[in-house]
């Protein structure tokens, strides 16, 4: 039972990170129907920025929660800036192009960003300082849940609630929902669609950066390639829940997290990444619209 609980919590932690990244995919897909392949790279850049900032601060003699706060803030700002710029360069000129063009452009952007970070920094794994503070009151539950896991869960939950409020209550959220429903109609009623799309990319990138800082700090090492696998898995989560649906992405992410956790725990740890892809193919065969997605009929 203890082993089961450990795997369950591990899956929950994984799922939270996937959820943070999957939200970016699903929001962008909802609004411009594009798989933003470069999204995983935004997450990776967030993690790298946090590493660089925290290392510089640590060499300068700072420590404690202020390092975490500064590193995370800078990472969030930079990820948002990258997300914004990527959209402006690679996707905006292709709004009216055939569907294949922005997809290839997205793949190109993803490869470009990976290699940019690799060439500018390093291709080796870098140790990531454990920025997340230890919570002493957890010690008696120490075997059940670690403090970094608890922090990841709480941060994810808070981010989700904030995102929900943002989408439900603010004017920007309303514009996003309107654009997702019908871009032309939204334009007609006075929504600045370009700005709304930019906001969507920025919000998605902020969430990815939060995920990047949390997971890098939890696992303790990063390299330029982490965004690629994390990106595919988060996309799997988004498809699993029904792409375009925000609660679906969260649900899909947790299901994926648990699947991976239990499968590696009970079956084999060599094939950790294979389970996610098998799940993706299965869901596409059985229910292509995802768990919470609505199947749309294409009108001509």
């Amino acid at each position: 039972m203890d082993y089961f609980l450990e795997l369950f919590l591990g899956g929950l932690t994984r799922g939270s990170i996937y959820a943070l990244i999957a939200l970016g995919y699903t929001m962008v897909y909802g609004i411009i129907e594009l798989i933003n392949f470069a999204h995983g790279e935004i997450y990776m850049i967030g993690a790298f920025t946090a590493l660089i900032v925290s290392s510089v601060l640590a060499f300068a003699g700072m420590s404690g929660p202020s390092v975490l706060f500064l590193a995370a803030s800078v990472a969030i700002i930079y990820s948002a800036a990258y997300g914004f710029t990527v959209e402006k360069i690679a996707y905006k000129p292709l709004r009216q192009a055939p569907r294949l063009s922005p997809l290839i452009s997205a793949i190109g952007m993803s490869i470009f960003l990976q290699n940019y970070v690799m060439l500018a920094q390093t291709s080796d794994f870098l140790p990531f300082p454990s920025l997340l503070p230890e919570l002493p009151f957890l010690e008696k539950y120490g075997l059940r849940i670690g403090s970094s896991e608890l922090i990841i869960l709480l941060t994810t939950a808070v981010s989700m609630v904030l995102l929900m409020l943002l989408i439900k209550l603010t004017k920007m959220g309303k514009a996003m929902r309107a654009t997702a429903q019908d871009r032309n109609m939204a334009m007609l009623v006075g929504v600045d669609v370009n700005r709304t799309i930019s906001y969507t990319f920025i919000i998605g990138s902020v969430l990815a950066a939060i995920g990047g800082v949390l997971i890098a700090s939890h696992i303790g090492r990063i390299n330029f390639y982490i965004g690629f696998i994390a990106g595919i898995k988060a996309f799997t989560a988004a498809v699993l829940g029904g792409i375009g649906s925000i609660p679906g992405a969260v649900l899909g992410a947790f299901i994926l997290g648990w699947t991976e956790s239990f499968a590696t725990g009970y079956v084999s740890s060599d094939y950790e990444d294979v389970f996610a892809f098998v799940l993706l193919v299965l869901i596409l065969i059985v229910r292509p619209s995802g768990l919470l997605g609505r199947s749309t009929v294409q009108k001509v």
């Binding site: 129907e33 594009l34 798989i35 569907r99 294949l100 997809l103 793949i107 696998i229 595919i232 996309f235 799997t236 498809v239 060599d270 094939y271 990444d273 294979v274 996610a276 892809f277 098998v278 993706l280 193919v281 596409l284 065969i285 292509p288």
Partner: peptide
């Protein structure tokens, strides 16, 4: 067979995933 009934974007990601599975299986 299962994938081609779907929209093009899914194909991109499934083929990507399949290539990774193949490589991981060959490696492990």
């Amino acid at each position: 067979f299962p994938v081609l009934r779907l929209r093009g974007d899914y194909l991109a990601i499934v083929t990507l995933g399949f290539a990774e599975i193949t490589r991981l299986v060959l490696e492990n």
